Simulated scan of single mutants.
Amino acid sequence: MGRRGGYGPRRWVRLAAMVTLGSVLGAGCTPTANEETSSDGPATTAVARPASLILSVAPGAHGVEPAGTVTATAQGGTITQASLVGTRGTVVEGAITPDGTAWRSAEPLGYGKTYTLTATARGADGTPVTRRSTFTTATPQRQVSVSMNVSDGQTVGVGMPLIFSFSGDITDRSAAEQAVRITTEPATEGAFRWFDDDQLIWRPKEYWRPGTTVSVEANVYGRDLGDGTYGTEDRAATLTIGDKVVAIADGETHHMSVFVNDRRLRRLPISMGKPSSSTPNGTYTVMSEHYGYTMDSSTYGVPVDSGAGYRLWVEYAVRLSYSGIFYHSAPWSVGYQGNTNTSHGCINLSTEDAAWLMERSQPGDVVTVRNAGEQVLEPTDGWSVWQLSWEEWTAAGA
């Protein structure tokens, strides 16, 4: 009994010592305020790093496309200052992005010009870093202009193709197509096709939906279109698709039915081409409208003083083809209209009927001719893109 009582105190001393030592060891593992801990290894200390800069154009670069966007991008920091300046002190417009990580140019550059891009960024360490690049843009071997068959603010018909005519042949067709942007609301399926090396055409798969808004951009300036050929100037237009106006002219009944938004409004007596100069069958697209126009056979190769030649002034005329097919007022043939084809190929109407149709018509409207004779309209004669099926339009190699 006394021995057991004597052993107890020494045991409690040893346990107290162990608890005290454990507390000390535990305290030794607690990190200080200036250290980071990791479950995978020893403590590390964070290091503030400087920013780095990436310039989109390498120093000394030549032949840079003037249409491209020049950029300076910061990694591990933000852009504090940037500029793009020509050798004569011309400052190119540009801006730092909202997040501060990049600067981008906002306007095209000149041809054959030298510019210097300078950018400064600051990283987490607070040290500014500056990089500079001096480069030269491309000098064209040849320049071409582009024109469009539509104008800004225009209202057009449901058959309107979008035609881009270049002042010279284009060898890199893909580059030219990429330079053209067509945006529609609502979305409209369509495709490009080349009729010649200098004419690019886009048409919808089906007739446009009335009310569609179409924005067209031909951004050819500063772009290499093949073999050192560059565009001289960009083009742009926003247009609206108007009512669906479709006219069907029949050479057997000698009448033209006019439909507006699929509802027939009038059936007009007409006279088309006589057998020796029949009106080609096919689907035409209205190209232009004229108040007061001189019909001249010499414009398509028939001398005015020949047996088949003529030179006549008409009050109303609407062009349907390059080869000279119009619908127009023809008061001299009213007696034949509705019963006989007597024209040189045009669609003759009375003055009153021609005026009525022109009031409701616009470029891009559709006129279909049928039962008029042996001739067939060529897809390349005017804006006659609807002569080709969608499969033909999108065929490989077109």
Results as ranks from 00 to 15, higher is better:
residue 37 T to A: 06
residue 385 V to I: 04
residue 193 R to F: 13
residue 102 A to K: 03
residue 382 G to W: 12
residue 87 T to R: 05
residue 17 A to I: 02
residue 88 R to S: 12
residue 67 A to S: 15
residue 321 S to Q: 07
residue 349 L to S: 04
residue 6 G to L: 14
residue 101 T to C: 09
residue 277 S to V: 01
residue 122 R to V: 15
residue 236 A to T: 11
residue 99 D to S: 09
residue 138 A to L: 11
residue 35 E to L: 14
residue 48 A to L: 13
residue 9 P to M: 08
residue 83 S to G: 11
residue 67 A to Y: 14
residue 161 P to T: 08
residue 207 Y to M: 09
residue 101 T to M: 07
residue 50 P to Q: 13
residue 63 G to W: 01
residue 268 L to S: 02
residue 386 W to S: 00
residue 88 R to Q: 13
residue 296 D to L: 05
residue 270 I to A: 00
residue 17 A to E: 07
residue 381 D to K: 06
residue 126 G to Q: 10
residue 303 P to R: 08
residue 160 M to Y: 03
residue 377 L to T: 06
residue 255 H to M: 11
residue 33 A to V: 15
residue 322 Y to S: 15
residue 313 W to R: 13
residue 57 V to C: 09
residue 210 P to I: 09
residue 187 A to W: 12
residue 334 V to P: 03
residue 370 R to F: 01
residue 314 V to D: 04
residue 106 A to F: 11
residue 233 E to Y: 09
residue 215 S to P: 02
residue 175 A to Q: 05
residue 209 R to G: 00
residue 30 T to S: 06
residue 255 H to Y: 13
residue 188 T to Q: 15
residue 178 Q to R: 15
residue 266 R to I: 10
residue 361 S to G: 06
residue 34 N to Q: 12
residue 71 T to D: 10
residue 375 Q to G: 03
residue 254 H to V: 01
residue 44 T to K: 09
residue 301 G to M: 01
residue 322 Y to T: 14
residue 218 A to G: 13
residue 308 A to R: 13
residue 226 G to F: 15
residue 146 V to M: 01
residue 180 V to S: 02
residue 229 T to H: 04
residue 146 V to A: 07
residue 136 T to D: 04
residue 2 G to T: 12
residue 26 G to A: 15
residue 153 G to L: 12
residue 249 A to K: 09
residue 135 F to G: 12
residue 241 I to Q: 10
residue 228 G to W: 12
residue 146 V to D: 08
residue 220 V to C: 06
residue 142 R to Q: 14
residue 140 P to Q: 02
residue 236 A to Y: 14
residue 318 V to M: 04
residue 274 K to N: 01
residue 93 E to D: 14
residue 256 M to W: 08
residue 207 Y to I: 08
residue 146 V to H: 03
residue 388 L to S: 11
residue 164 F to W: 04
residue 77 G to Y: 05
residue 251 G to V: 03
residue 287 M to E: 15
residue 233 E to A: 14
residue 61 A to Q: 08
